[in-house]
């Protein structure tokens, strides 16, 4: 207990918390992406995956609570460090300051806050299935038959969900910020844990770049792929079966506006 208290009380300790929770979240992001990329397969593939997760409530809730705690710790540490950092420089420079610092390193709190807002939205969107936020309607009505069992039609939800242009746009923006956050945070994580020296630092930075780019491309491919027309016929059928109103905007308009984004927490 003494150790935890000491950890929390010291600025370095809180950085360890940031780094370790950050590392856990990156691992989650990778797993989550692998799960969601199944949307590029047959509809049953991802539906079965979702059903499998739902059939293990202990595991699912364990993971959810664990994630929530991890995110919570990450944010709490960030918040206290932010207030420490603010109070350490009560008078700002007239000429800016923060010489030679990259913008991604300077705006971690900003990118983090947008990502937090996105997580809340994402949970409402695909976990709570709140009809008020998805621009489509009641996703709970979307069901399908899987080996004789009626299960939620996650595939249709994703296709219909990302065919709403502003949803796709918000996802993409959040993904871009996540990329920024990770491209600094991943390398900084190694630094905070002391896992670098002059030999490994360039490699750590490269790793951070590669992982954050890969995650961005992976996640962005989902809304972009959907906007490009993947599963649109299936989704139209599903929508008809569920008697949902037509989407306020078509895939074509979204494409005209710009690409869309990927999702997290598709599992319910």
């Amino acid at each position: 207990m003494n150790l935890l208290l000491r950890l929390w009380r010291s600025s370095l300790g809180k950085k360890y918390v940031m780094a370790l929770t950050g590392a856990a979240l990156v691992v989650f992001l990778v797993g989550h992406l692998v799960g969601n990329l199944q949307v590029f397969g047959a509809p049953d593939l991802i539906n079965q995956y979702a059903h499998f997760l739902k059939s293990k409530p202990l595991l699912l809730w364990g993971a959810r609570l664990g994630l929530l705690a991890t995110v919570g710790l990450h944010i709490a540490a960030a918040f206290t460090l932010l207030s420490l950092n603010r109070s350490a420089r009560p008078v700002a420079y007239a000429t800016g300051g923060a010489y030679a610092a990259t913008s991604r390193s300077r705006y971690m709190a900003v990118s983090g806050s947008v990502i937090l807002a996105f997580i809340v939205y994402h949970l409402l969107h695909f976990t709570a299935l709140n009809p008020a936020v998805n621009g489509v309607g009641d996703f709970t009505k979307l069901t399908t038959d899987l080996h004789g069992e009626t299960v939620p039609d996650v595939y249709a939800m994703m296709i219909l969900g990302f065919n709403v242009w502003w949803v796709a746009a918000f996802y993409l923006i959040a993904q871009a910020l996540l990329f920024m956050h990770l491209s600094h945070g991943l390398a900084a994580m190694f630094q905070s844990l002391g896992l670098r020296n002059h030999v490994w630092w360039p490699r750590v930075q490269l790793l951070a770049r590669v992982v954050s780019v890969a995650l961005f491309l992976g996640y962005a491919s989902i809304p972009l792929g959907i906007l490009a027309g993947i599963g649109s016929r299936y989704a139209a059928d599903a929508r008809a079966r569920a008697h949902l109103a037509a989407a306020p905007s078509s895939a074509a308009t979204v494409l005209a506006v710009g690409p869309a984004s990927a999702g997290k927490e598709v599992v319910r």
Binding site: S11, L81, A98, A101, S105
Partner: peptide, 9 residues
């Protein structure tokens, strides 16, 4: 003093 956020300044 504040905490290190690895900006490199």
């Amino acid at each position: 003093f504040g905490a290190c956020t690895v900006t490199g300044s």
